[in-house]
Simulated scan of single mutants.
Amino acid sequence: MIKCWFFLAIALISGSVYAESTCADIHGQESYPPLRIKNGTICFVQEPVLDPGTKTQISADAISLYYIFNENVPVKAGGRGLLFDNTPGEIIDAFSSSVGHDQQEKIFVIHSLEVRESLVESNSSGKFYSVSVFDPIGHTLRRDERASDWFGADYSWLSDGRRVTYKFPYQSRRDVQQAMGSPFALLMNRDGFISVRLKDKSYLFDGPNVRSKTKKYMIRGDRATVDKATAGWCQVHHSGGAKPLEMWLMCSAFNIDAQAKK
Rank of each mutant, 00 (worst) to 15 (best):
E20V: 10
D191K: 13
N86D: 14
R162G: 14
S112W: 00
Y203F: 15
D257K: 01
L83P: 06
D144I: 01
I26Q: 02
V115N: 11
G15C: 14
G181P: 01
G79K: 03
K215Q: 11
A94F: 07
L12V: 11
A185F: 10
F95Q: 01
I13D: 09
W248P: 02
F128N: 04
S252R: 13
W150V: 01
G100P: 05
K216W: 09
Y203W: 12
I256A: 02
C43S: 02
Q46Y: 07
I68Q: 01
S16M: 14
A185Q: 06
I256R: 07
D257S: 07
G40I: 08
S132L: 10
K213D: 10
H101E: 13
R80W: 12
V115R: 13
S212T: 14
K127M: 14
S96D: 12
L187P: 12
Y203A: 13
E20P: 00
T54N: 10
G138I: 01
F128V: 05
A179E: 03
F6W: 08
S31I: 02
S59L: 10
A77N: 03
I63Y: 01
P52L: 10
S118Y: 05
E90N: 09
A24C: 06
G89E: 01
V176K: 00
S97Y: 14
V164E: 11
W248Q: 00
L12Q: 07
K262Y: 04
C251H: 06
F84D: 06
Q171D: 08
R163K: 15
G40T: 07
A253P: 02
D191R: 10
A153C: 04
C234W: 02
V75Q: 06
W233Y: 04
R223C: 10
K262C: 08
I37Y: 10
S98K: 13
K38M: 12
V17H: 09
I26N: 00
Y217I: 08
H237T: 14
V176C: 02
R142H: 13
R190I: 13
V75R: 02
G232C: 03
L245H: 10
V49N: 03
T22V: 14
N72P: 03
C23E: 06
T56K: 07
K167Y: 11
S122L: 13
P208A: 09
T230D: 05
S122H: 13
G192W: 02
G53M: 15
A94D: 04
R116H: 09
K106A: 08
E121M: 10
F205S: 05
N189K: 12
G232F: 00
T41R: 02
Y170V: 08
F128R: 03
L158S: 04
G100C: 05
T225F: 12
F193A: 07
